[in-house]
Design a protein around this nucleic acid. Structure first.
Lengths: 353, 353
DNA sequence: TGGATTATTGCAAACGTTTGCATTAAATTA
DNA sequence: TAATTTAATGCAAACGTTTGCAATAATCCA
């Protein structure tokens, strides 16, 4: 057991004939320890190879200097980007980040919340499962007044701090853009409605159609997990019979890109025959040809806001009283090749105000 | 302070008129606690909303049930995929994972090692910075016999457990493939040689050239951080004067994809005029056109091996004595459009044994 | 029925910090 | 110089567990 080499502050104290309290205070730069003592203590700390034990300090202080993060998966562009930012930002504040993935499983999410509570994280950041509609597993955090922030995929009707993208507007803008480019029959491929993200975007899609007096047809909206496989299957369904849509608005970029591939496979031209808009502005949209238009969600801004809000809560500037508050991060449409120009020859441009 | 609601095992003990030790053992299913008592304890634990305090347990047991992971960045495909797998796998074993990014900064890496040590992680997994050549900051772990595993970007000459891809072979296979497809003047774009990954691949590249009696020219190898921007610049250099190379082997896919874009921009045809092979088999290689050939590194296998080895070390089956041991994960070339067919008309196929 | 074995439970120390309060030493003032 | 203030240090409890050992209760066998 070489563990016997672990030095503690009592070793330092003994070596210097000081009390442990003095050593502790010296290491923490407590004001009423003399400069000379601080020097001596720090020096022998280095000499002995002393490493503070964060567990012990955490136990005593009832804080772990650790934040928990739960996301569906870190292999997807948007959560990955946000996680990166959160992690880097927290590092600046001296916090560690425990990143966990629910893999979009409700049960896993519940389990993770509990282990992160046991780990006594000082705060929890979460983007929920596609299927989380009951949020009571977060009560432990909320009721114990431990900072809790949701982002992107956030609860509806749960009294808590929420930071989300402007999904309604995203749905609206994406659809409007296609209409302005001349599309008259726009399919929307959405995620499951249990997730607020998608219901908001669908609402935006609807209101855009309505505003431009285009009919909303139930058969033109698809609800599915937004995987490549599902996208391909849905394409097969869509293009199994005419009339073909002249625009498709997909609620993520994996889907948008797959649609584009499918169109090529059946010799439909993008954007001439079908225009496509995706969501998230995944960098893949740029390298694919034609490049795919997409709704950017400013992940950087969102990540920074998450950390800022969290830190305010931790430092008590923000009232930690569980109070619903929603912060909306703007979105922006990035126009690319996949939705360029006019609908196929013969149709003329809608004149829009 | 609603923190006063935190229940501990002594609350359970009081409620049941038992000793804390009995409660502790009951909760941990210790064999010599009667079934009846266990039942009662667990029931009131639930009733009181008791949550174990992992910090306290960790302090007492000298283990945190937490693993540290340091990667350059989690936004890159390969480390992201591995992190995902490691995280999911560890979850099965009841371990949390603290994911940290060094952002390819040596100083940050050093700092992270120290905070993870302070957090008393039960093990550390790391893929180093591009520029880490001094590994002494890992001594704390090695010397205290705390499981330490390196993967992908691993140390040379540091006595420790290492799991890496077969980069020499990857370099060899990638180059050989281009040669077999008829290339005679192959550029190699490599990362900095401080990183074992790249030096191994360069070695593979060299030996392939040698084997096929092609000259190795220093001017045909470039060493740089493998970013998009650098790739573009290097392309400008390469194609600023003739003769153009007829094959390019890039040490990552971002670079390979950018090269392909550059070629299109100057109206060079891929693969007819230039053939391209990348590294890592990033999914982007598939959606780009022409699809880019790449060397797959089996991230799944690597991730699983990392966790398996780590668990063996933690459970003491593997000797934890710091002993260098290297495990090589195979690679596989995935041929795609970017390196298909023959070199431009007029050249005839090399007949290879 | 009594002694021995076995099954349960309890006591108390330990893990490494931090911190309120008490104490001592040093500096200041009258 | 004595009394008072200020600066620096020490004592001991506390954070919530776990665990070796001791103690008690229950069971068994002859």
């Amino acid at each position: 057991m070489s563990k016997r080499t672990e030095k503690t502050i009592v070793d330092i104290a003994e070596e210097l004939q000081l009390s442990v309290s003095t050593v502790s205070r010296a290491l923490n730069d407590h004001p009423n320890i003399s400069a000379r003592t601080k020097e001596r203590v720090k020096k022998t700390a280095r000499k002995l190879g002393y490493r503070p034990n964060a567990l012990a300090a955490g136990l005593r202080n009832n804080k772990s200097k650790t934040i928990g993060l739960i996301v569906p998966r870190i292999s997807m562009f948007f959560p990955a980007t946000i996680s990166t930012i959160i992690q880097n930002k927290l590092q600046e504040f001296g916090y560690n980040l425990i990143i966990c993935q629910s893999n979009d499983s409700y049960e896993q999410e519940v389990a993770l919340v509990n282990t992160l509570y046991s780990a006594r994280v000082d705060g929890l950041v979460v983007s929920t499962t596609l299927y989380t509609t009951d949020f009571s597993h977060f009560d432990v955090f909320r009721d114990n007044n431990i900072p809790l922030v949701f982002f992107d995929r956030v609860p509806k009707d749960y009294n808590v701090k929420v930071i989300k993208g402007d999904d309604y507007r995203g749905g609206y803008i994406g659809t409007t853009h296609l209409i302005e480019k001349g599309c008259k029959d726009i399919v929307h491929i959405s995620g499951p409605l249990t997730c607020c993200l998608y219901s908001d975007r669908v609402a935006g899609y609807k209101s855009a159609l309505q505003e431009f007096k285009l009919p909303f047809k139930k058969s033109r909206v698809f609800y599915q997990e937004l995987t490549k496989e599902n996208a391909w299957q849905t394409c097969e369904k869509i293009f199994s019979q005419k009339p073909y849509p002249d625009g498709i608005f997909a609620s993520n970029d994996t889907t948008a890109i797959t649609i584009s591939e499918y169109c090529r496979s059946i010799h439909l031209r993008v954007p001439e025959d079908v225009k496509i808009v995706g969501y998230s502005n995944d960098p893949r949209t740029e390298i694919v040809s034609p490049a795919v238009s997409s709704v950017d969600q400013y992940p950087g801004m969102m990540g920074e806001r998450v950390v800022a809000v969290l830190m305010e809560m931790i430092n008590g500037r923000q009232t930690a009283v569980p109070r619903y508050s929603q912060e909306i991060i703007p979105i922006q449409l990035i126009e690319r090749q996949s939705s360029a120009g006019k609908v196929k020859a013969g149709k003329k441009k809608l004149s829009l105000s």
